[in-house]
């Protein structure tokens, strides 16, 4: 990958276009909030105002109705699905060009998003972009990325392995056996089964310490960090000196 236009084109084909096509199926499989994220959102003071950057189907918008979240996603189809979660709002936007004022928000979450950017520079730019929206030294961001170290998962990735991978998403076809009503038996029912369709999404799998390094590299301070269920996560705040 050479220049910015090529990087963008790569992500367009291998991330954005895929989510746009799998949006509704993807959404139907994403409904249970992860505990650390739920705790983060529920622990915010009533009336807090923040962002959910890469909100997908908006499952985290449903967690706390006493705060106000402007969600954003690159996929129009996912944003449309997410927009039903009141009192919150959703727009279509790119993490590198967010339509929000700097230094204004109490919090931000970005869950399973940064790992879709295809170069180290773009991943750091994405973190800088999140931190720039936060109120200096008060605002905090919760960031989740997929881990390379997933020894216990069926995917079989582990320390020392390839970090830039293509991950399949299988959209199940209709497996319904062809209906054979007694009347028509013998006429040979026509099969209408739809085949499974596999899409591949680009991921950068984060190794231990890499997320913390990226946050520090763009002037952020890690307040808390950890590993949960195949993911690295961190809560970060912009340092006062950061832009």
């Amino acid at each position: 990958m050479g220049n910015v236009a090529e990087d963008e084109q790569y992500e367009e084909s291998h991330v954005h276009a895929v989510y746009e096509q799998i949006a509704s199926h993807f959404s139907s499989t994403r409904y249970k909030p992860w505990p650390i994220i739920e705790r983060f959102l529920k622990g915010l003071p009533d009336g807090s105002i923040g962002l959910d950057i890469g909100c997908g189907n908006g499952k985290y918008l449903a967690v706390n109705p006493a705060i106000f979240i402007v969600g954003s996603d690159r996929s129009t189809n996912l944003a449309q699905i997410a927009s039903q979660h009141h009192p919150h709002s959703v727009v279509v936007a790119d993490i590198l060009d967010l339509p929000h004022q700097h230094h204004s928000f109490d919090f931000a979450i970005s869950i399973a998003v940064i790992h879709h950017l295809s170069t180290p520079i773009r991943r750091r730019e994405a973190i800088a972009s999140i931190l720039a929206t936060l109120r200096p030294d008060e605002g905090k961001a919760l960031i989740y990325v997929w881990a390379l170290e997933q020894e216990s998962s069926r995917r079989g990735w582990s320390e020392g392995g390839e970090q830039d991978v293509m991950v399949p998403w299988v959209m199940k076809g209709s497996k319904k056996s062809t209906s054979k009503s007694p009347k028509n038996s013998g006429t040979g029912a026509v099969s209408v089964a739809v085949e499974d369709k596999t899409f591949h999404r680009y991921y950068h799998l984060y190794r231990r310490g890499e997320l913390d390094d990226d946050i520090a590299a763009v002037g952020g301070k890690v307040l808390e960090a950890g590993y949960e269920k195949d993911n690295w996560w961190a809560i970060a705040t912009p340092e006062l000196s950061a832009s």
Binding site: V91, L98, Q101
Partner: peptide, 24 residues
């Protein structure tokens, strides 16, 4: 899009974001 949202949105262009004219 509810009008409350407009209070938390500005131009997405980096060159505009810090200018007063971009908001609202």
């Amino acid at each position: 899009m509810k009008l409350l949202t407009l209070n938390f949105l500005t131009c997405a262009r980096k060159t505009c974001k810090s200018t007063a004219a971009a908001f609202p």
